[in-house]
Write a protein that binds this DNA or RNA. Structure first.
Length: 771
DNA sequence: CAGTGAGCGAGCTTCCGCTTGACTT
């Protein structure tokens, strides 16, 4: 017989709590929700109060039967799931499914896993809050209705297997909207003026001071006029102002801020951060990693302040607890922090170490004092112009939390930060070393990264810590969004430099627009988005979630009946679904670009069976239309007629080699040359299939042939299907179309037929990790 | 591996939010 059975959500949590509670308590986990709407149908009675039909999904059967048998052996069952909407629902589902009798069931909650908090919870049990449970049911039912009624509309009107939902569709919209802003962005340029002045300090020491003009000039002529004025100008220090300023540390990590900082500082993807954090959590190294709370337990605050005084001194400490600012936060857990603050580092993989250290630093810094700075601003007047030069310097007076942590930002890297200024006094006359006018271009708003998208979603109150990573993977899996690198392009800019009383003009080039790991909408994402915005604008509205959340709060407060709220939403929504199915045309993102100058036939782009395609001519016309696939990075909505026609220039016959034609085209694996029924790949980076000429093609063919000659290292008379080949990663065994690795310990030059057979029948174990 | 773009019809796809393993390459 068990006296007390405690059920929590996570097994790692169960282990910790069991240690705290001791022998009289057995602690088990439910592994999250144990029941849900069936995934095969709607499972909601839309005719009768939206009654949900719940069932235990197959993967949860085992947990439930285990819990059932434990319950039978227990005197009292303590439902200790999280104190939020989902946690309350988990407790309720457990009570229902395990058939728990009220007299032997207690509901308890705690926000931190400490002895005090848990003991206090045990002393203050309550009953399941049915209003809160109903708010969760409303959330669940609404999401199911939206997802399972919208998705089939997309299958019929756009493409099978697509999906839509309250969260994912808004995430896609953010990315599509941003891309359109970028496509429509008109970059303008202006001339920024910066000067370097020579300053003589006492003892004749020379310093340089960098200053910037308060105004920019829109044209080169104005910039030139200004530099000409400077030739005869006297520069005088008009003012020196010193001002103290402070920098405060950021709050401890939540899921969202951890994902952002790990992305910026460690280059982790959102999924990677969560996987590493999960391992740290399971190893007992950090607190729970799916949280929206910035709260720290008293024990953690004590430990931090003790550690800070000991390691850095009393004045570095600033004990405080932060308040969450994010919309819809439920704060069922603590912030993400090390469980043992005295461990600055841990044993583990490189990724685990780095993430842990990031969490440690952020937590400690959050309990440290502000950094104090002194900012100096020097205003330099120009005798014959009204503009001023400004030189700025910043000195750190007290480092405070900066001793351990510096937060990164998403913005473009700042130009060299201001440092210490040399001794300058009001009234000094300065002599310029040089004054430069540099043409600078305005930049389009940045594309989202996974982490900055999470940040935006959190600001909008859309999604939860447990869903940020899965949402981002879903919108990529559906093909709505691609995470990609894009090469930049070269751009010319003007530079005018005044030095030694003469002005020199230069044209320079810079690389602009290069992107790394950014989210781009793909054609299908844009089509789906436009369709949803047109027919279901209310759900795609950025405030839709915030609006329904307010109603869920009212349900939780007992002021609103959940199925009435759903009924009010569902009636117009369902009518819209029906009318959209009846009225709207099948949407393939078709767009007419113009007509083909050669034949006069219309030129269209649209989604075809195998992706976006250009079509010349109508299907109904007597002559069959011609087709060409769009290239990677080309969009249905932005491709021009010229670009579309260009696609029909392939395949190109570019000449003869060894009496056979050389034909250039683009296949699944990129551009290639076809010659004498053999394929030769063009170099994606340096060769352009639209312009490549015969000489270069021959060169490529010869290179490939040479490579192939050295490809076969060894053959065996015993079996012609077996050979040792030289591949991209070194020698390998090829046998009947399959490839096999040769271990590093074996010399591929001396390998025998027998050894090969052994490696084929018993290949060395591969590293796991791939699906 | 190097190209597709027809048409019919059956059967399937899909949401968000809790939480971890147990499968194979």
């Amino acid at each position: 017989m068990i006296n007390n059975l405690v059920i929590v959500e996570s097994p790692a949590k169960a282990k910790t709590i069991e240690k705290i509670l001791g022998k009289n308590f057995q602690v088990k986990s439910s592994m999250g929700h144990i029941r849900d709407l069936s995934k095969n149908d709607l499972s909601i009675d839309t005719k009768k109060n939206f009654v949900p039909r719940y069932s235990v999904p197959p993967e949860k059967k085992k947990v439930v039967s285990e819990l059932k048998s434990l319950v039978k052996k227990s005197k009292v069952v303590w439902l200790a799931s999280d104190e939020d909407r989902e946690g309350e629902a988990i407790a309720w589902h457990l009570a229902e499914e395990l058939d728990l009798k009220p007299d032997k069931t207690r509901r308890i909650v705690f926000h931190e896993i400490t002895k005090d908090a848990i003991e206090e919870a045990i002393e203050n049990p309550r009953e399941i809050n049915q209003d809160l449970v109903n708010a969760q049911q409303a959330r669940r039912v609404l999401d199911r209705l939206v997802g399972y009624e919208l998705s089939p509309v997309l299958w019929k009107k756009i493409k099978p297997s697509l999906s839509a939902g309250r969260v994912q569709s808004v995430a896609v919209r953010l990315i599509v909207d941003r891309e359109r802003e970028i496509i429509g962005f008109k970059s303008t340029s202006a001339f920024k003026i910066s000067a370097i002045f020579d300053v003589k300090g006492n003892k004749g020491k020379k310093y340089e001071v960098k200053a910037e003009l308060t105004e920019k000039f829109t044209g080169k002529k104005q910039a030139l006029d200004f530099l000409n004025l400077c030739k005869s100008a006297v520069f005088t220090v008009e003012n020196v102002v010193k001002k103290p300023s402070r920098k405060s540390p950021s709050p401890p990590f939540t899921t969202s801020t951890l994902q952002q900082e790990a992305s910026r500082k460690l280059g982790f993807s959102v999924a990677q951060t969560m996987a590493v954090a999960q391992r740290l959590y399971e190893a007992g190294k950090i607190t729970y990693m799916r949280t929206d709370s910035v709260n720290l337990s008293n024990a953690a605050l004590d430990a931090a302040s003790e550690l800070i005084s000991r390691a850095f001194g009393e004045k570095y400490g600033n004990r405080k607890n932060y308040k969450t600012k994010s919309k819809g936060a439920q704060e069922a857990h603590e912030a993400i922090r090390p469980t043992g603050l005295d461990h600055e580092t841990i044993a583990g993989t490189a990724a685990e170490k780095r993430l842990y250290e990031l969490i440690w630093k952020r937590t400690i810094a959050s309990q440290m004092s502000d950094a104090q700075l002194e900012k100096t601003t020097v205003t330099i007047g120009i005798s014959n112009a009204r503009e001023k030069f400004i030189a700025e310097g910043e000195v750190l007076k007290f480092d405070g939390f900066l001793k351990v942590y510096f937060e990164s930002s998403d913005d473009e890297p700042e130009e060299d930060s201001a440092g210490l200024l040399p001794p300058i006094e009001k009234g000094m006359t300065l002599i310029y070393d040089n004054i430069a006018a540099t043409e600078r271009f305005t930049h389009y708003p940045p594309r989202y990264t996974e982490a900055s998208l999470v940040k935006k979603l959190e600001e909008l109150g859309i999604g939860r810590p447990s869903t940020y990573a899965p949402t981002i993977s879903t919108i990529q899996q559906r093909g709505y969004v691609l995470k990609e690198d894009r090469p930049g392009r070269e751009r010319k800019f003007s530079l005018l430099v005044l030095k030694n009383n003469t002005i020199r003009e230069e044209t320079k080039t810079e690389n602009t627009g290069a992107e790394k790991n950014k989210l781009f909408p793909d054609n299908i994402g844009m089509i789906v988005n436009d369709f949803l915005v047109e027919y279901f604008g209310n759900i795609l509205d950025f405030n839709f979630t915030a609006f329904v959340e307010k109603e869920f709060d009212e349900i939780a407060a007992g002021k609103l009946v959940w199925h009435k709220m759903i009924a009010k939403f569902y009636k117009p929504f369902h009518e819209r679904v029906t009318s959209t199915l009846a009225k709207s045309a099948v949407n393939k993102g078709e767009r007419k670009l113009g007509s083909d100058p050669e034949t006069g036939k219309p030129v269209f782009v649209r989604m075809g069976r195998f992706g976006p395609v250009v079509q010349i001519g109508e299907v109904s016309a007597p002559e069959k239309p011609r087709y060409a696939s769009l290239r990677k990075g080309q969009n249905l909505e932005s491709i021009t007629l010229e670009e579309a026609l260009e696609l029909f220039k392939l395949p190109r016959t570019i000449g003869k080699f060894e009496d056979k034609d050389m034909v250039v085209s683009i296949g699944r694996f990129g551009p290639y040359i076809l010659h004498n029924s053999a394929f030769y790949s063009l170099n994606r980076n340096t060769d352009d299939p639209y312009t490549v000429e015969a000489d270069r093609a021959i060169e490529i063919i010869r290179e490939k042939r040479l490579k192939d000659q050295t490809k076969v290292l060894k053959t065996f008379p015993e079996d012609t299907e077996l050979s040792i080949l030289n591949g991209r990663w070194g020698p390998y065994i090829k046998y009947r179309k399959e490839n096999y690795k040769i271990p590093k310990t074996t010399d591929p030059g001396k390998i025998t037929y027998k050894e090969c057979l052994a490696l084929i029948s018993n290949p060395p174990a591969r590293k796991k990790g791939k699906k």
